[in-house]
Design a binder for these strands. Sequence first.
DNA 1: GGTCTATTCAAGTGATACTTTGAATAGCCG
DNA 2: CGGCTATTCAAAGTATCACTTGAATAGACC
Lengths: 227, 227
Amino acid sequence: MADRKAKDALFGAFASVAKALGNGHRAEIVDVLAQGERSVENLADEISQSVANTSHHLHVLADVGLLQTRRSGTRVYYRLASERVGELWGALRDVAVEHVAEIEVLAEGYLGDRDGVEQISAEELAARVAKGRVVLLDVRPFDEYAAGHIAGARSTPLNDLPRLAASLPRSREIVAYCRGPYCVYADDAVRLLRKRGLRARRLDIGYPEWSRANLPTEAGPQVVRSS
Amino acid sequence: MADRKAKDALFGAFASVAKALGNGHRAEIVDVLAQGERSVENLADEISQSVANTSHHLHVLADVGLLQTRRSGTRVYYRLASERVGELWGALRDVAVEHVAEIEVLAEGYLGDRDGVEQISAEELAARVAKGRVVLLDVRPFDEYAAGHIAGARSTPLNDLPRLAASLPRSREIVAYCRGPYCVYADDAVRLLRKRGLRARRLDIGYPEWSRANLPTEAGPQVVRSS
DNA sequence: GGTCTATTCAAGTGATACTTTGAATAGCCG
DNA sequence: CGGCTATTCAAAGTATCACTTGAATAGACC
């Protein structure tokens, strides 16, 4: 084949995208950015890295085109370059969960024992929300809620949950959701609510997956901020 | 956060899948295996690498769980661990095409000038096949055709095409397809047919994408082998 | 000018990735 | 069993890259 070199170059370019995602910190960055844009400092804090190092990783992702930036005053905000990048991240995570043996163990190590954290599927939740049978709590930080949330959800950041738990109805089931299937927030929320005797489950996916499935969403602080 | 280490480990495991795909040769291997299982020797030949090196790369992919093997006599056959791996590869390629700037150039370098290689979308083809308006040619190697092909397609490996071109009808449009949107076979076929004055276009995707879209397929050499 | 944020640079650290070679293994065939 | 083939393994060679840190710089705002 005369064009072996050209073929290698083309597939090398395809592989460059995978290479950019092939680092734990960068994977985490993409996971966070799937919730919405973030400043460098904010991201650095989220992934527990120095600003310089975070900036470096952001450039690796931006150089292959996975991220875009916006400047506002002294801050630079990064976001996923398109919806498809979020889909790719989701596909990558799903394949990892299905095929990487140790993930089950690592997930339990991070999320804790999931006995007692019952899950509810997106289909079932969608049906129940439509019938008004469920109190739906978005337990992510408020900014992420404001950037977009499941239709009908109420913002209840994890910090505020202990205070607000008393006001939740005992007669209806409570469902909590957060960033994704491997985010701790909803698990923690469910454990807290159950300890107080409330009926609570967590959605088995997060907001980005819900949104990508074209299920109903809203944006902006339309529901009263819990503060 | 007390569980920073656990979180790093979990996301590191997610990233390990991307790392495995982060090499041109391995990306090419996955692309080939999306057509069906292959022996090591066969793959080595396809990607123009030594058997030992190919075996090494196969193990990298198999170690993270992306591939599975089957032994038959003295040969070992590798295949994608699941349909989802093929989807992941497709998502990766799509994101690369959309966001990696140089891919357009590299693709032209490999596929050649695509003026004169008109494309047809899957939707349009599906409609036309249903109405019998199209002669559909699978220009991949026969084994891949036998493993699965678009319903109604005829196997016409590129090598055999010059000989068979004369028997193709001038009254109907001819559509060729192959392994994927960045496979040369269909482009070469269209150029050859056009040179002979036939009306030919290429499908803008390949068999794996068609199959994943749940469009009609068949398996086995049901249509007479062109040989 | 002073402050804040982000980027860049230089440097250290450590290691990893890819390929080739030659030998070893495992199964087939006569 | 002995010879054959296909694949794997181990080791070595090669090259280079990846990640992190701390300090310097640049740009924007007040």
